[in-house]
Design a binder for these strands. Structure first.
Lengths: 204, 204
DNA sequence: TTAACGTTTGTCCAAACGGTCAAATTTTGC
DNA sequence: GCAAAATTTGACCGTTTGGACAAACGTTAA
């Protein structure tokens, strides 16, 4: 009926496909889809171009599997925000998780940023569907917390946008952050500093 | 001595060069440097590729003049922040100006974001030089205001980053913002809503 | 051992790319 | 009005790109 079956894969296929995804993430996150070439990705993966195309039909397909995986990673932290939890704690954890993602998965963040910058041609339906639904739900929770006086009153949607913007900034604009902070303050501690600052900003 | 002279330009040259810059901004801000083609820009400018190359030596040069102009626009609002002014007023004006820029010059914002995402290959010296110096200066001012109790105490550098991140978010991630807000709340009023929210966040 | 299957690569192709050039056309200054 | 200068374009070039293909090489299991 479906016509679409999960293809059986050998051990080598699973490993090589993962290797290619890793290389593609590196390249795509820096140059965007149009700015990246299959040759670049193949070289980063340590294989020939035809060999890479043995594992992925074409450039689009590599990008597609990357985006698909990215979206799950991306929605997870917000999904975890628990309506039954302590508001301050929930927001604090959310900020922490997002800053950790900026620190540990900057390439994923940049890939996402690149896609949005270009008008989100491949993920617009998901933004208007799944993401909007999730944000609507969580914004309602946050709004309730605000009405209960557990959080300072403001617009829940823009509150969420502000957390996204500030946390992802440390991944997407990392070069600028380090340039401005200089070698001393721009070291590894910058993410911890950022986390503390943002907790104060959003919860203070 | 200098060897570099401002070339004399005819009326047509001035007009056409401006036309090309406008078209190039449109294209580069969406696809980045590597992802954009001269043909795309030429078409957007309504002329043939050779004709475009009559006005600009090559792709790099178009991009360079765009970046150069962008940087001036970009630093202006922060420069205007006045150490002698009323702290609350100065911060509020700064946020307003930045939100207005996100609304009125989204392409410039995206061009900048694109450049930083790719590691700022063409403007890193400026970030480490001029920008760092400016931020150092203004962070000192903000730090003084905080010590005087005119602003809530926090880290002045991350305070500035947070203003950048949140305001530019409304230009760079506009597609996402509109997708999440939906057709009703995502209308023209979203920038005014954002401005009010951000004033509360940073000054409340 | 060997046949079947999975993997890898050199070679090739057409389209797209950045850029050149000479010839044709238009504008300008006298 | 006309010559010089400025502008525009079609045709072209070498390179890069995404992708196809068949032949060669490895692996596996009967």
């Amino acid at each position: 009926m479906d016509g679409k079956v999960t293809p059986k894969r050998t051990r080598i296929q699973r490993e090589k496909r993962e290797l290619i995804r890793e290389a593609a993430l590196e390249v795509f996150s820096q140059y965007g889809f149009r700015g990246s070439t299959i040759d670049q990705i193949a070289e980063a993966a340590g294989m020939s171009k035809p060999n890479l195309l043995y594992y992925f039909k074409n450039k689009e397909e590599i990008f597609a599997t990357l985006i698909q995986r990215l979206l799950e990673t991306w929605l997870a932290p917000l999904k975890e925000m628990d309506a039954e939890g302590e508001p301050q704690t929930e927001i604090r954890s959310y900020i922490r998780r997002k800053i950790e993602m900026a620190r540990d998965f900057p390439r994923e963040s940049r890939l996402f940023a690149n896609e949005i910058l270009q008008g989100a041609p491949r993920i617009l339906p998901m933004l208007e569907g799944e993401l909007k639904a999730l944000v609507d739900e969580k914004a309602a929770v946050i709004g309730q917390w605000m009405r209960e006086g557990k959080l300072k009153k403001s617009d829940p949607y823009h509150f969420i946008f502000a957390i996204w913007a500030t946390t992802q900034h440390y991944a997407d604009f990392d070069v600028q952050v380090r340039a401005v902070l200089g070698p001393v303050r721009g070291g590894e501690g910058r993410f911890e500093d950022a986390a503390r600052f943002l907790e104060g900003l959003f919860l203070g």
